[in-house]
């Protein structure tokens, strides 16, 4: 058990930023992002304690955590609508991290908001492919969808983000 705890601690430290970033890109605000990230790791912890040793050893942590994060967001969405508008850059910038040099906080929030406004299937595909730069194969694995579906969802999602062909949106 000690081994799993050590491994979990390393996993949290190593993947916390990526998981938080997924949460942010999928929910559109920092408060929900932290909740999603925390839920993701809690679920991961509970799952790990039931897995046999070889499964833990062979685990591809990053795609596995992404899949859990996507599911956490999906389950939350069933309960409540994502809050996309209220935290639009209005929070005080407490920690000017490295990201603030490249993209202003307000711009990040704005982009995350626009992502959160996309229908879930496009949003998930775009976030994993372009925010997290996973290959189409990895995205397909994380979302448990065929690669072709992922490709078309990414394409469609990007079109919607750019504000192209609004009139043909059916979702």
């Amino acid at each position: 058990m000690e081994g799993v705890e050590r491994m979990f601690e390393r996993m949290v430290r190593e993947h916390q930023h990526r998981v938080y970033a997924v949460g942010f890109a999928l929910t559109g605000n920092r408060h929900d992002a932290e909740e999603v990230a925390q839920d993701t790791f809690l679920r991961a912890y509970r799952a790990l304690s039931t897995y046999p040793a070889e499964r833990i050893r062979d685990l591809k942590q990053s795609p596995w955590l992404h899949r859990i994060a996507v599911n956490v967001v999906r389950n939350r969405a069933r309960g409540a609508k994502p809050r996309t508008a209220e935290l639009n850059g209005s929070e005080p910038d407490d920690a000017p991290g490295p990201e603030s040099r490249t993209l202003l906080r307000a711009e990040m929030d704005d982009l995350a908001c626009r992502l959160a406004a996309l229908p879930p299937r496009y949003r998930e595909a775009v976030v994993l492919r372009h925010v997290h730069e996973m290959s189409y194969g990895e995205v397909a694995e994380a979302l448990e969808q065929p690669v072709g579906t992922v490709k078309s969802n990414v394409h469609r999602g990007l079109q919607l983000l750019r504000g192209e062909d609004h009139d043909r949106v059916v979702d």
Partner: peptide, 15 residues
Amino acid sequence: DLKRLGSMKAPDGFA
């Protein structure tokens, strides 16, 4: 921009 979104850092003390 999307790529930069991926470089978001979790808040201090998150882990």
